[in-house]
Amino acid sequence: MKNESIKVFQKKKKQILETWMKLQLADESLREDLMSNEELRGQSEELISILVDNLNDSNIDDPRHSDFDSVVDILSGISISRARQGFSPRETGTFVFSLKDALLNTMQQELKDPQELFLQSLKISKLIDSFGVTTFETFIKGREEVILRQTDEIAEISTPVIRVWDGILALPIIGTLDSARTQVVMENLLQEIVESGSSIAILDISGVPAVDSLVAQHLIKTVSATRLMGAECIISGIRPEIAQTVVHLGIDLTNIITKFTLASALRTAFNMLHLQVVKKQKQTIAD
Protein backbone atom coordinates (compact mmCIF):
# COMPACT_ATOMS: atom_id res chain seq x y z
CA MET A 1 0.00 0.00 0.00
CA LYS A 2 1.42 3.33 -1.04
CA ASN A 3 1.48 5.78 1.81
CA GLU A 4 -1.37 8.25 1.38
CA SER A 5 0.32 11.19 3.00
CA ILE A 6 3.39 10.98 0.76
CA LYS A 7 1.19 11.09 -2.32
CA VAL A 8 -0.60 14.08 -0.87
CA PHE A 9 2.69 15.87 -0.21
CA GLN A 10 3.89 15.30 -3.74
CA LYS A 11 0.68 16.61 -5.18
CA LYS A 12 0.39 19.58 -2.85
CA LYS A 13 3.99 20.77 -2.77
CA LYS A 14 2.99 24.27 -3.80
CA GLN A 15 0.27 24.52 -1.22
CA ILE A 16 2.56 23.32 1.57
CA LEU A 17 5.10 25.95 0.62
CA GLU A 18 2.45 28.66 0.71
CA THR A 19 1.17 27.55 4.11
CA TRP A 20 4.71 27.30 5.44
CA MET A 21 5.63 30.74 4.14
CA LYS A 22 2.49 32.20 5.67
CA LEU A 23 3.35 30.61 9.02
CA GLN A 24 6.91 31.86 8.90
CA LEU A 25 5.96 35.37 7.86
CA ALA A 26 3.29 35.52 10.54
CA ASP A 27 5.73 34.59 13.25
CA GLU A 28 6.78 37.46 15.48
CA SER A 29 10.37 36.34 15.54
CA LEU A 30 10.80 36.76 11.77
CA ARG A 31 14.10 38.49 11.14
CA GLU A 32 13.63 40.61 8.08
CA ASP A 33 16.69 42.55 9.12
CA LEU A 34 18.89 39.46 8.72
CA MET A 35 17.30 37.78 5.73
CA SER A 36 15.01 39.00 2.95
CA ASN A 37 11.67 37.28 2.32
CA GLU A 38 12.83 36.18 -1.14
CA GLU A 39 15.85 34.48 0.35
CA LEU A 40 13.69 32.79 2.96
CA ARG A 41 11.30 31.61 0.25
CA GLY A 42 14.19 30.19 -1.77
CA GLN A 43 15.50 28.24 1.20
CA SER A 44 12.05 26.95 2.09
CA GLU A 45 11.23 25.86 -1.46
CA GLU A 46 14.51 24.02 -1.84
CA LEU A 47 14.01 22.18 1.44
CA ILE A 48 10.43 21.12 0.69
CA SER A 49 11.18 19.76 -2.74
CA ILE A 50 14.22 17.83 -1.55
CA LEU A 51 12.27 16.42 1.40
CA VAL A 52 9.19 15.42 -0.62
CA ASP A 53 11.25 13.95 -3.46
CA ASN A 54 13.21 11.72 -1.11
CA LEU A 55 10.36 10.66 1.13
CA ASN A 56 8.98 7.16 0.58
CA ASP A 57 7.30 4.31 2.46
CA SER A 58 10.48 2.66 3.59
CA ASN A 59 12.29 5.65 4.98
CA ILE A 60 9.55 7.66 6.64
CA ASP A 61 10.23 5.96 9.97
CA ASP A 62 13.97 6.37 9.75
CA PRO A 63 15.32 9.94 9.85
CA ARG A 64 18.89 8.59 9.68
CA HIS A 65 18.23 6.85 6.36
CA SER A 66 20.79 7.70 3.69
CA ASP A 67 17.96 9.01 1.46
CA PHE A 68 17.79 12.00 3.79
CA ASP A 69 21.48 12.86 3.53
CA SER A 70 20.72 15.66 1.09
CA VAL A 71 17.95 16.97 3.36
CA VAL A 72 20.29 16.94 6.35
CA ASP A 73 22.97 18.68 4.27
CA ILE A 74 20.62 21.49 3.35
CA LEU A 75 19.34 21.82 6.91
CA SER A 76 22.91 21.88 8.25
CA GLY A 77 23.90 24.51 5.72
CA ILE A 78 20.92 26.66 6.64
CA SER A 79 21.44 26.39 10.39
CA ILE A 80 25.22 26.97 10.23
CA SER A 81 24.75 30.06 8.12
CA ARG A 82 22.04 31.25 10.47
CA ALA A 83 24.26 30.68 13.50
CA ARG A 84 26.93 32.85 11.87
CA GLN A 85 24.44 35.54 10.86
CA GLY A 86 23.36 35.82 14.48
CA PHE A 87 19.92 34.19 14.44
CA SER A 88 18.74 32.96 17.83
CA PRO A 89 18.17 29.21 18.39
CA ARG A 90 14.42 29.89 18.65
CA GLU A 91 14.36 31.64 15.30
CA THR A 92 16.23 28.80 13.67
CA GLY A 93 14.06 26.18 15.36
CA THR A 94 10.88 27.93 14.26
CA PHE A 95 12.00 27.58 10.65
CA VAL A 96 11.94 23.78 10.88
CA PHE A 97 9.02 23.33 13.22
CA SER A 98 6.70 25.56 11.24
CA LEU A 99 7.27 23.17 8.33
CA LYS A 100 5.72 20.47 10.50
CA ASP A 101 2.67 22.66 11.01
CA ALA A 102 2.37 23.19 7.28
CA LEU A 103 2.65 19.46 6.53
CA LEU A 104 0.15 18.48 9.20
CA ASN A 105 -2.19 21.19 8.00
CA THR A 106 -2.19 19.78 4.49
CA MET A 107 -2.66 16.24 5.74
CA GLN A 108 -5.62 17.32 7.79
CA GLN A 109 -7.29 18.74 4.70
CA GLU A 110 -6.55 15.76 2.47
CA LEU A 111 -6.73 12.62 4.59
CA LYS A 112 -10.27 11.60 5.45
CA ASP A 113 -9.75 8.58 7.70
CA PRO A 114 -9.08 9.82 11.27
CA GLN A 115 -7.14 6.68 12.20
CA GLU A 116 -4.90 7.06 9.18
CA LEU A 117 -4.50 10.79 9.77
CA PHE A 118 -3.38 10.16 13.34
CA LEU A 119 -0.85 7.50 12.36
CA GLN A 120 0.60 9.57 9.54
CA SER A 121 0.74 12.70 11.68
CA LEU A 122 2.72 10.82 14.28
CA LYS A 123 5.21 9.62 11.69
CA ILE A 124 5.69 13.04 10.15
CA SER A 125 6.02 14.61 13.59
CA LYS A 126 8.76 12.20 14.55
CA LEU A 127 10.60 12.75 11.29
CA ILE A 128 10.52 16.53 11.48
CA ASP A 129 11.39 16.50 15.21
CA SER A 130 14.48 14.51 14.38
CA PHE A 131 15.40 17.02 11.68
CA GLY A 132 14.83 19.76 14.24
CA VAL A 133 17.35 18.17 16.58
CA THR A 134 19.84 17.91 13.71
CA THR A 135 19.33 21.60 13.07
CA PHE A 136 20.13 22.40 16.68
CA GLU A 137 23.21 20.25 16.66
CA THR A 138 24.61 22.01 13.62
CA PHE A 139 23.48 25.38 14.94
CA ILE A 140 25.50 24.83 18.10
CA LYS A 141 28.43 23.59 16.04
CA GLY A 142 28.25 26.78 13.98
CA ARG A 143 28.28 28.85 17.15
CA GLU A 144 31.17 26.84 18.57
CA GLU A 145 33.16 27.55 15.44
CA VAL A 146 32.51 31.25 15.90
CA ILE A 147 33.68 31.00 19.52
CA LEU A 148 36.79 29.03 18.59
CA ARG A 149 37.70 31.55 15.92
CA GLN A 150 37.27 34.39 18.38
CA THR A 151 39.37 32.58 20.96
CA ASP A 152 42.16 32.27 18.42
CA GLU A 153 41.81 35.93 17.54
CA ILE A 154 41.92 36.98 21.18
CA ALA A 155 45.01 34.85 21.74
CA GLU A 156 46.65 36.54 18.76
CA ILE A 157 45.65 40.05 19.68
CA SER A 158 46.43 39.72 23.34
CA THR A 159 50.10 38.88 22.94
CA PRO A 160 51.70 41.65 20.94
CA VAL A 161 55.48 41.85 21.08
CA ILE A 162 56.71 45.43 20.89
CA ARG A 163 60.21 46.53 19.96
CA VAL A 164 60.70 49.37 22.42
CA TRP A 165 64.36 49.92 21.64
CA ASP A 166 67.10 48.45 19.56
CA GLY A 167 67.68 45.13 21.32
CA ILE A 168 64.83 45.50 23.83
CA LEU A 169 61.42 43.88 23.44
CA ALA A 170 58.36 44.45 25.60
CA LEU A 171 55.38 42.17 25.95
CA PRO A 172 52.41 43.44 27.92
CA ILE A 173 50.27 40.55 29.16
CA ILE A 174 46.60 41.31 29.71
CA GLY A 175 44.28 38.77 31.27
CA THR A 176 44.90 35.45 32.93
CA LEU A 177 47.90 33.32 32.04
CA ASP A 178 47.01 29.68 31.55
CA SER A 179 49.24 27.04 30.04
CA ALA A 180 47.86 27.42 26.50
CA ARG A 181 48.31 31.19 26.65
CA THR A 182 51.81 30.84 28.11
CA GLN A 183 52.79 28.72 25.15
CA VAL A 184 51.54 31.39 22.72
CA VAL A 185 53.34 34.11 24.70
CA MET A 186 56.57 32.12 24.76
CA GLU A 187 56.40 31.26 21.06
CA ASN A 188 55.77 34.86 20.00
CA LEU A 189 58.39 36.25 22.34
CA LEU A 190 61.13 33.78 21.43
CA GLN A 191 60.41 34.07 17.72
CA GLU A 192 60.65 37.84 17.93
CA ILE A 193 63.90 37.58 19.91
CA VAL A 194 65.39 35.52 17.08
CA GLU A 195 64.07 37.83 14.37
CA SER A 196 65.10 41.08 16.00
CA GLY A 197 68.26 39.79 17.65
CA SER A 198 67.13 41.39 20.90
CA SER A 199 68.95 40.48 24.06
CA ILE A 200 66.45 41.79 26.60
CA ALA A 201 62.74 41.09 26.92
CA ILE A 202 60.43 42.86 29.35
CA LEU A 203 57.31 40.95 30.39
CA ASP A 204 54.82 43.42 31.81
CA ILE A 205 52.16 41.80 33.99
CA SER A 206 50.27 44.93 35.11
CA GLY A 207 47.28 43.55 33.19
CA VAL A 208 47.31 40.15 34.88
CA PRO A 209 44.58 40.19 37.52
CA ALA A 210 46.14 37.71 39.94
CA VAL A 211 49.29 35.70 40.26
CA ASP A 212 48.94 32.30 41.86
CA SER A 213 51.53 29.56 41.98
CA LEU A 214 50.46 28.28 38.56
CA VAL A 215 50.78 31.69 36.88
CA ALA A 216 54.12 32.20 38.63
CA GLN A 217 55.28 28.86 37.31
CA HIS A 218 54.33 29.92 33.79
CA LEU A 219 56.27 33.17 34.23
CA ILE A 220 59.31 31.29 35.50
CA LYS A 221 59.11 28.95 32.50
CA THR A 222 59.00 31.90 30.11
CA VAL A 223 62.04 33.45 31.79
CA SER A 224 63.94 30.14 31.68
CA ALA A 225 63.18 29.63 27.99
CA THR A 226 64.29 33.20 27.19
CA ARG A 227 67.57 32.60 29.02
CA LEU A 228 68.15 29.33 27.19
CA MET A 229 67.97 31.32 23.97
CA GLY A 230 70.62 33.65 25.29
CA ALA A 231 68.50 36.66 26.18
CA GLU A 232 67.58 38.15 29.56
CA CYS A 233 64.02 38.58 30.77
CA ILE A 234 62.73 41.25 33.15
CA ILE A 235 59.27 41.05 34.71
CA SER A 236 57.63 44.40 35.34
CA GLY A 237 54.27 45.55 36.61
CA ILE A 238 54.41 43.67 39.88
CA ARG A 239 51.91 45.34 42.17
CA PRO A 240 52.24 45.23 45.97
CA GLU A 241 49.35 42.73 46.24
CA ILE A 242 51.12 40.43 43.81
CA ALA A 243 54.39 40.70 45.75
CA GLN A 244 52.42 39.81 48.87
CA THR A 245 50.72 36.72 47.43
CA VAL A 246 53.97 35.57 45.83
CA VAL A 247 55.70 35.62 49.21
CA HIS A 248 52.75 34.06 51.03
CA LEU A 249 52.60 31.23 48.52
CA GLY A 250 56.30 30.64 48.98
CA ILE A 251 57.13 31.19 45.30
CA ASP A 252 60.78 31.87 44.67
CA LEU A 253 61.26 34.71 42.20
CA THR A 254 64.72 35.71 43.44
CA ASN A 255 66.39 34.43 40.27
CA ILE A 256 64.24 36.71 38.17
CA ILE A 257 64.73 40.44 37.72
CA THR A 258 61.46 42.02 38.82
CA LYS A 259 60.48 45.68 38.58
CA PHE A 260 57.51 47.72 39.71
CA THR A 261 56.92 49.64 36.50
CA LEU A 262 57.71 49.22 32.83
CA ALA A 263 59.72 52.46 33.05
CA SER A 264 62.05 51.10 35.71
CA ALA A 265 62.38 47.84 33.76
CA LEU A 266 63.39 49.89 30.72
CA ARG A 267 65.95 51.77 32.81
CA THR A 268 67.42 48.46 33.96
CA ALA A 269 67.50 47.25 30.37
CA PHE A 270 69.34 50.43 29.29
CA ASN A 271 71.86 49.84 32.05
CA MET A 272 72.43 46.27 30.94
CA LEU A 273 73.07 47.44 27.39
CA HIS A 274 75.31 50.28 28.65
CA LEU A 275 72.94 52.88 27.25
CA GLN A 276 72.27 56.24 28.79
CA VAL A 277 69.37 58.60 28.34
CA VAL A 278 70.58 62.20 28.50
CA LYS A 279 68.46 65.30 28.62
CA LYS A 280 69.14 67.56 25.65
CA GLN A 281 70.65 70.96 26.33
CA LYS A 282 68.02 73.63 25.80
CA GLN A 283 68.94 75.64 22.73
CA THR A 284 68.72 79.34 23.18
CA ILE A 285 67.74 81.12 20.05
CA ALA A 286 69.39 84.45 19.69
CA ASP A 287 67.10 87.13 18.38
Partner: peptide
Protein backbone atom coordinates in the same frame (compact mmCIF):
# COMPACT_ATOMS: atom_id res chain seq x y z
CA UNK B 1 68.95 27.53 20.23
CA UNK B 2 65.64 27.30 18.35
CA UNK B 3 62.59 28.73 20.19
CA UNK B 4 60.73 25.41 19.98
CA UNK B 5 63.72 23.61 21.49
CA UNK B 6 63.97 26.13 24.35
CA UNK B 7 60.26 25.79 25.16
CA UNK B 8 60.51 21.99 25.09
CA UNK B 9 63.58 21.92 27.34
CA UNK B 10 61.86 24.10 29.93
CA UNK B 11 58.75 21.90 29.85
Amino acid sequence: MQPAVAITLVE
